[in-house]
Amino acid sequence: MRYGRGRQIPDAEGDMTPMIDMTFQLIAFFMILINFSEGDQNQLIRLPASELAKPPETAPAYPVTLQMTSKGTVFYGVEEYTLDGIIPILQVEKQLVERRGGDYRDTTIIIRADRYAKTGRVQELIRTCQSVGFEKFTLRAKQEST
């Protein structure tokens, strides 16, 4: 194509608006779906699956999440403990609930055990929690599509 002499060539500018629109939509999508709850998730734990596992309708008043690995150790948050080593942590949790004016017996121990953990070991964890005074337990499973 040939331009006439003295005629100015227009700047070739791409329209940025659709790209920016799309980018903001992507950011909004990821912001909504981002999950910062690292304390309740652990890459070492492969939960057993259950088709009947449904998220609870109401959150427990005082939840304490304990995660048991296939080796039989227990994660509380990001720290790994033995079964005996978790007792002081549970006692602190008990005191914290009482200081907040609650009843420690309302504490729900959420057990996220690895699918290859030994059942006896999971039961020992429950017994350890019972020895501190906790009575409510829930076993967590991954939701399996039917």
Binding site: F30, L33, I34, N35, Q41, L47, S50, L52, A53, K54, P55, P56, I110, R112, I126, Q130, E135, K136, F137, T138, L139, R140, A141, K142, Q143
Partner: peptide, 14 residues
């Protein structure tokens, strides 16, 4: 970003 599958609880009486 990580895809977290939904989890559910089974209450046990102890």
């Amino acid at each position: 970003f990580k895809i977290v599958s939904p989890e559910g609880d089974f209450y046990i009486k102890m």
